[in-house]
Amino acid sequence: MTPLAGRGIGIGWRPEISGFVAELPGLRFVEVVAESLPHSGEPPEALAKLLAAGVAVVPHGVKLSLGGAEPVDPHRVEHLAAAARAVGAPLVSEHIAYVRAGGVEAGHLLPLPRSREAVDAVVANVARTTAELGVPLALEPIAALFDWPDDELTEAAFLTEILERTDALLLLDIANVYANALNRGEDPVDLLTRLPLERMAYVHVAGGRLHEGRYHDTHTDPVPGEVLELLGELCARQRPPAVLLERDGHYPPAAALRAELDALSAATGYPAITGAPAR
């Protein structure tokens, strides 16, 4: 059975909203930025309380650079594995992206060329990582404002080959699907029909905004209605085992966050975790 089956709607745990998260009566899973967990292995007290209440915690790595041509840093892999053990994680997740090259940090997730060489690099780095992890790994395709001129494969072919060769699960970010399609002038549903949706471990939903004609996946703005509609389209094809709201700054009042969580419940048919009456 897939690791997050039955977990429904979750939220990205961040220290700034830990009080809000602690008060969600129906919460069954959260994500935590893996690099924010201490090296000591002891989770922060607020997370420990959630764990004690039976909430699953998924470490979400953002700095492993699985798509780098350079091998992943063994210390970072070790930290991710320790984070997974510390929270008894059912799985961990990371991105199909690179974040550094030649000793230069990008400070964010950068897209890969959709080339055979990049597929090989990801596959090798995933192998190095999963060799140390005691739990499954889910891979998340990112949002990007540009593509490489080196592309040889379609996005669907690129992602499918990586998933098949690594045996990893898919963390599908529906807002990224929306963002990339909008910025490329494509139909987001088209990608959904070509991905191995049966490999979905869970789904990310986040907000963004248009800035100078491009859609930016900011995680600091409200979730657009179009993204919720696309989530509904996804569920009509294959409902993901679990769905998580990501917010990474400019935190709105609790009522607005609750409304976004309830909107995810409405779009997916999963029970509201906020205590709101079921629709």
Binding site: P15, E70, P71, E140
Partner: peptide, 28 residues
């Protein structure tokens, strides 16, 4: 993707991140 890396950079050591280009060849 995550807006990422917005939480707790403590414990993250930039000094360790320098890997020579093409330093692959770790046998895999």
């Amino acid at each position: 993707m995550t807006g990422g890396a917005t939480v707790g950079r403590a414990g993250d050591e930039p000094a360790r991140q320098r890997v020579p280009v093409g330093a692959g060849g770790d046998g895999i």
